[in-house]
Design a binder for these strands. Structure first.
Lengths: 221, 221
DNA sequence: AAAAAAACATTCACGACTGTTTTTTTGTTT
DNA sequence: AAACAAAAAAACAGTCGTGAATGTTTTTTT
């Protein structure tokens, strides 16, 4: 154990930077032309390094893909957590919740990458294990965010989790639909319908025995 | 032996039967281990024929994949059309509509196959073109089904199309979510919420100026 | 029964990708 | 400055998938 602090950091940092570049290149290729195209050669070329150098940092392709996926979703998770903090410290309404989730957490390019990896993970067992683990963790972040964002509803957590799952499912499906057949107007209308559904659900849960409450009870933003 | 009544139809039927077997094998492999694994060798082996024979019927791998996709979704489309006829000739309620769509049209194994092909189609331009065309057509079948199934609501078509898109998006997203983290209870709860959302939307559109109508106005099946 | 056409089978050539091994370069320690 | 280890590059071997070329059997036609 010698004077590690500076020296080791230097090397490690360099290695970390290299790995970050490799992951970035991998992610770009996945987003542009799919996971299958993210071969060792392609990634190394985009990075401007040799394949040998790459293999030094990521011994196998699976290692590279998994680490890329992990960091990719880690970023998404960070966004969710930050939003959760924002929302906890201030104002929150259903529309903000839904739109934040849709715009910030599910940008369209992220979805295609996600689908690519999910599909790949279905067959490649090692990748599949990692992907599933990451996605479960991410979903829990969604739940935390949702619980905080919808805390004013004062609904029990189980009830909120249903709403959250509903929301996430609809948003993901909407991204897919818009990917197949883009239609901004319809997209907006569906988002409106989702928001109304959530508000209505909250209102109904708050007044279970009564008749349908008027939606105007809620503050209209 | 040229005298069998059964064989009389000859090459065309035989060729069609062969192609059907090849498509079936391809579809099975896609469902089990993914599109990437559906190589010429794998498909031919599962069929018990040689690769040469396969190449005779499908000159390239893309041809095989595209034709398999076409028939795969054609079957889904037939289901939707048949359901649309059923619903047009008889009873229909929102729950039946949603559950039919979810159970009959989006069986879970169909979804993974669909995702596989959609993801593949994103990069393989020829396959992508075909997939997009097929899916657009399928979605129009969804719309026809939805318009008929929800005809009692007497809503204008544009309004119905929003509801339909909303429904399809949520169902697809729910399949994905259930694929990542299965939870039957939550799945059922989300479906219930979806049904309630649609009913509420219909009710709100039917009485735009009035207060929220009581849901008991609808007949309870 | 013979010719023609389709179906089927076998083999080969080419390229791509993965992962291993070997060599060179770079930078740190003594 | 020299020794040394890590990083980077290059060369290598093995596997796999595709598609083409060629040969064989079966079925239809005449």
């Amino acid at each position: 154990m010698q004077t590690d602090s500076e020296i080791k950091d230097g090397r490690e940092l360099k290695g970390a930077a290299m790995r970050a570049r490799l992951r970035a290149a991998t992610e770009e290729i996945i987003a542009e032309v799919g996971v299958e195209a993210a071969s060792g050669k392609a990634v190394a070329e985009r990075c401007g390094v040799s394949r040998g150098a790459m293999l030094h940092h990521y011994p196998t392709r699976d290692d590279l893909i998994i680490d890329t996926a992990r960091h990719f979703w880690q970023r998404a998770r960070d966004v969710v957590v930050r939003q959760a903090e924002d929302v906890a410290s201030g104002r929150s309404d259903v529309r903000t919740y839904v739109m934040t989730l849709y715009e910030e957490v599910f940008p369209s390019n992220a979805l295609v990458t996600m689908l690519d990896l999910v599909v790949l993970g279905r067959t490649e067992s090692r990748i599949g294990l990692a992907v599933n683990e990451i996605l479960s963790d991410l979903f829990h972040a969604y739940e935390e965010f949702g619980v905080k964002a919808l805390s004013r509803s004062q609904l029990p957590p189980e009830e909120l989790r249903i709403i959250i799952t509903f929301t996430v499912s609809t948003l993901r499906g909407l991204r897919i639909q818009n990917n197949i057949e883009p239609d901004r107007a319809k997209e907006a209308a569906v988002l409106d319908m989702l928001i109304a559904s959530i508000e209505q659900r909250i209102a109904a849960a708050a007044h279970p025995a009564a008749e349908m409450p008027r939606q105007t009870d809620e503050d209209p933003t």
